[in-house]
Design a protein around this nucleic acid. Sequence first.
DNA 1: CGGCTAATTAGCCATACGGTAAAATAAACC
DNA 2: GGTTTATTTTACCGTATGGCTAATTAGCCG
Lengths: 119, 119
Amino acid sequence: MTGDHLSTIFSALSDPTRRAILARLASGETSVSELARPFSLRAPTITKHLKVLEHAGLVRRSRQAQRRPCRLEAAPLKEVTEWLEQYRQFWTRSMSRLDNYLAAMEPEGKKKHARKKRN
Amino acid sequence: MTGDHLSTIFSALSDPTRRAILARLASGETSVSELARPFSLRAPTITKHLKVLEHAGLVRRSRQAQRRPCRLEAAPLKEVTEWLEQYRQFWTRSMSRLDNYLAAMEPEGKKKHARKKRN
DNA sequence: CGGCTAATTAGCCATACGGTAAAATAAACC
DNA sequence: GGTTTATTTTACCGTATGGCTAATTAGCCG
């Protein structure tokens, strides 16, 4: 763990079980035991995964009776797409040598009096 | 390692050094030792990171003399954005309860101006 | 209270990861 | 051929991760 926020998010997303949990939560809140069922994993394992997701800000938990239902929190996913935007040009254009050159010219800049290439 | 492709990609992206390597490669090919310099990491460490990136399909390597320059390969990043698209509605809309309900109604569908949910 | 259900904590285990130093390869160059 | 430079391979180390079981806490209900 580097303390780096983006690393935490990517790391949380790097497990298929956790992505499946997110997919499940996309269709509504659920409890831990309901989440555990389809994965044939024990409850403590799911709890651990939820902690990872929660720590990454991808899940928020509430409380109702004994249950601690989880809700999807998508803000970190937005951060990820914003990070990815930086590289979009590398797959939308044809990856020519010229494209790479242009990419190098505009390293991080947002609009930066962009005469041509209005982004 | 789960064998899952997406997991491999996310895992590769979950390290800040590797993301920095990608950022560096976005401005052109480079050799291992040039990559190592700004990170104050030893060459073998960079080699390992490059292997991870290469295995995730994010980097391609060539050969010129003793150098093995690396080139950015962005296709996997496209896959990631496509996976993320599935969740875009969760941060673009206001996350109301109704939105969640609608999201549940339209699980995987593309545009399909919702006649009645023809699925 | 006592019991029941849901979830977490604690402890264990095997494996993976990020880093290192030292040795081995690869290719140029004198 | 021998030297130099670039990179990889080969151990090795400490820590993190994903899974488990068993024990513990939290909250309902009879």
